[in-house]
C-alpha cells in the first residue's frame, strides 16, 4: 500500500467517524487533515510517520464530536441533546457523571409521580396517602394487608403529583443544563 492510499483510507475513516457533524464542519476537519498530511509526505515523511501524531481515527475525531454535541446541547436547549453530550463526557468528567446521575434521579421521581397520578385516576380509592389506627403511613397504592387505613389527601393527591412531575422535570433539566455549562466553562479554561 503506498502513502497516498494509506492517507486516503485514514481520511475516509475520519469522514465516517465524523458522520454526525454538519457536512461543512466535517469537510473542513477532513480537508485540513488532508492538507497537513500531504504537506508532510511532500516534505519526505512516510504516511505512517505523518499519521502518527494524529493517532487513531477514533481518538482524533473524539474532541470534535464532543465539542459539537456540547455546542448543540447548549444552543438547542433540548434535553436529549444534552443527555447525549453528557454521556460522551461522563467517563472522563465527574461533573458530567454527577449531572447525569442527578438528572436520572429526578427523572425517576417524575416517573413515580406520573405512575401515581395515573394509578389514582384508575383506582381513586386505592391510591393516595393513607394512615391507619396503628400510625402506619402508606404512600401510593394501599397494600391489601393494610386494613382500615384512611386516605388523607383526597383531591390534593392530584395536585401534589402534578406538582411533583413538573418540579422533578424542571430539576432534571436544570441538572443537565448546569452540567453542560460547567463542562463548557471548564473546557474554555483549559487547553
Amino acid at each position: 500500500m503506498n502513502d497516498a492510499s494509506t492517507i486516503h483510507i485514514w481520511l475516509n475513516e475520519l469522514e465516517r467517524a465524523l458522520a454526525g457533524l454538519p457536512e461543512a464542519s466535517r469537510r473542513d476537519i477532513v480537508n485540513e487533515a488532508r492538507a497537513h498530511l500531504e504537506d508532510r509526505v511532500a516534505a519526505g515523511l512516510s504516511a505512517r510517520s505523518a499519521l502518527h501524531g494524529f493517532g487513531t481515527v477514533k481518538d482524533y475525531a473524539r474532541p470534535f464530536i464532543e465539542d459539537f454535541l456540547l455546542s448543540r446541547a447548549i444552543t438547542s436547549n433540548h434535553s436529549l441533546h444534552m443527555i447525549k453530550a453528557l454521556v460522551t463526557h461522563s467517563a472522563r468528567s465527574i461533573v458530567a457523571f454527577l449531572g447525569l446521575t442527578f438528572a436520572a434521579a429526578f427523572g425517576g421521581l417524575t416517573l413515580i409521580n406520573l405512575l401515581w397520578l395515573i394509578d389514582k385516576i384508575g383506582s381513586p380509592d386505592k391510591v393516595g396517602y393513607f394512615t391507619d389506627a396503628g400510625a402506619n403511613n402508606y404512600i401510593g397504592r394501599l397494600p391489601t394487608s393494610a386494613l382500615g387505613a384512611t386516605e388523607q389527601l383526597g383531591p390534593w393527591w392530584y395536585v401534589l403529583t402534578i406538582a411533583g412531575i413538573i418540579l422533578s422535570l424542571f430539576l432534571a433539566r436544570l441538572c443537565l443544563r448546569l452540567s453542560g455549562f460547567a463542562i463548557v466553562r471548564a473546557r474554555s479554561q483549559s487547553a
Binding site: 487533515a33 508532510r40 482524533y60 474532541p63
Partner: peptide
C-alpha cells in the same frame, strides 16, 4: 496548522501532537 505545529515544537519546545493542536484550534 502544520506551520504552527512546527513553530511551537521548535521555538517553544512544546512537544505537542496534531491530535492536540487541531482540536484546540477548532475550539
Amino acid at each position: 496548522g502544520l506551520r504552527i505545529l512546527d513553530r511551537l515544537r521548535e521555538g517553544a519546545g512544546l512537544d505537542l501532537s496534531e491530535g492536540t493542536l487541531y482540536p484546540l484550534l477548532h475550539r
